[in-house]
């Protein structure tokens, strides 16, 4: 299958390793990965902040870029290693198209809504693609995924509630050889990111983050894994600020699902030259 990678702006610019890992996983399964060069961003930050007019060109660019590849047969589906960006593509793009028509925007394009919906229909979140389309149920057996250590898992809100991912991400993580996924208390609670919410309502957001960080560290896991780079940046930023460390004095990290799945016996995921989850599970994080 030919698969277009929508890296998402945050992964492209801040977490290239997540996109690289996504490529590795898909290629390991024998699929061909394409990176449509015109892509940039899903526009979620603008949309969720109410800046629809500013979101419109971002959405147009996304739809234009990906529909060209679908129409030209360059790829069959698109995948992004981010639940919230996929949710935006699937649910919000048509909405902003409608908004532009209703408001009589100069850039309004009556065809955009249907085109956005068509792109949305063929766009998948990574775990969704792996589980529902590519039939991956056992990461160790099918992908050779191997990562010794203990992690907690945070199911991001948009993956959980807008995409209804259910246990797809968790099941993939649980099937990684050597990996112990511990229960995260209050896992379904938002980490407090919410895009510009984190700056507009910084106090409430920080209070939510503090609870998330405390819950993660309470599990004793060496890292918190998730499927959304933006939430992980938020949680990671809190862990870093609070200088949270494991019993082995390694920093408590955040890991993207793709990085965990891409890790193998031959080429395990490493940080600073050491195994990614060294220090676990010897004892609780503090």
């Amino acid at each position: 299958m030919k698969i277009a990678l929508f890296a998402t702006c945050i992964v492209d610019a801040m977490y290239p390793r997540v996109a690289q890992a996504t490529v590795q996983i898909l290629e390991r399964l024998g699929h061909e990965v394409v990176f449509p060069a015109g892509q940039a961003c899903c526009g979620q930050m603008h949309l969720n902040s109410g800046y629809f007019r500013e979101a419109l060109p971002v959405v147009e660019n996304h739809v234009k870029t990906f529909e060209a590849g679908f129409d030209g047969g360059e790829y069959d589906v698109a995948v992004a290693p981010s639940g919230s960006c996929v949710a935006s593509v699937k649910h919000q793009h048509a909405m902003v198209a409608r908004w532009a028509v209703e408001k009589g925007e100069r850039r309004a394009d009556a065809t955009l809504e249907a085109r956005a919906a068509a792109v949305g229909d063929r766009t998948f979140e990574l775990a969704q693609l792996l589980t529902d389309v590519l039939g991956v149920t056992d990461a160790a057996a099918q992908l050779g995924s191997y990562l010794p250590g203990t992690i907690a898992y945070h199911p991001s809100c948009h993956g959980m509630r807008l995409l209804r991912l259910g246990d797809r991400q968790l099941n993939l993580l649980r099937s990684v050889e050597g990996l112990d996924v511990v229960d995260l208390p209050e896992a379904d609670q938002c980490c407090g990111f919410g895009g510009t919410f984190a700056v507009k309502n910084a106090d409430v957001s920080s209070a939510m983050l503090a609870d998330k960080v405390a819950n993660i560290c309470g599990t004793g896991a060496a890292a918190c894994a998730g499927g959304d780079a933006s939430c992980l940046m938020h949680i990671g930023g809190g862990l870093s600020r609070e200088q949270r460390t494991t019993a082995g004095d390694a920093p408590v990290r955040t890991l993207h699902l793709a990085e965990v799945l891409a890790s193998t016996r031959e080429h395990p995921l490493t940080f600073d030259g050491g195994l990614a989850l060294a220090g676990s599970p010897a004892g609780g994080a503090r």
């Binding site: 030919k2 801040m14 977490y15 290239p16 390793r17 997540v18 690289q20 890992a21 490529v23 590795q24 290629e27 390991r28 061909e32 990965v33 394409v34 990176f35 060069a37 360059e74 940046m233 990671g236 930023g237 862990l239 870093s240 920093p251 408590v252 990290r253 955040t254 990085e259 891409a262 890790s263 193998t264 031959e266 080429h267 395990p268 995921l269 490493t270 940080f271 600073d272 990614a276």
Partner: peptide
């Protein structure tokens, strides 16, 4: 002319130290 490339070796040994919060 497609943009497919060869698989890289292991798990993000380069990227792993980058963009890491800690």
């Amino acid at each position: 002319g497609s943009t497919r490339g060869p698989a890289t070796g292991g798990a993000t040994s380069d990227g792993a130290t980058e963009g890491e919060a800690q």
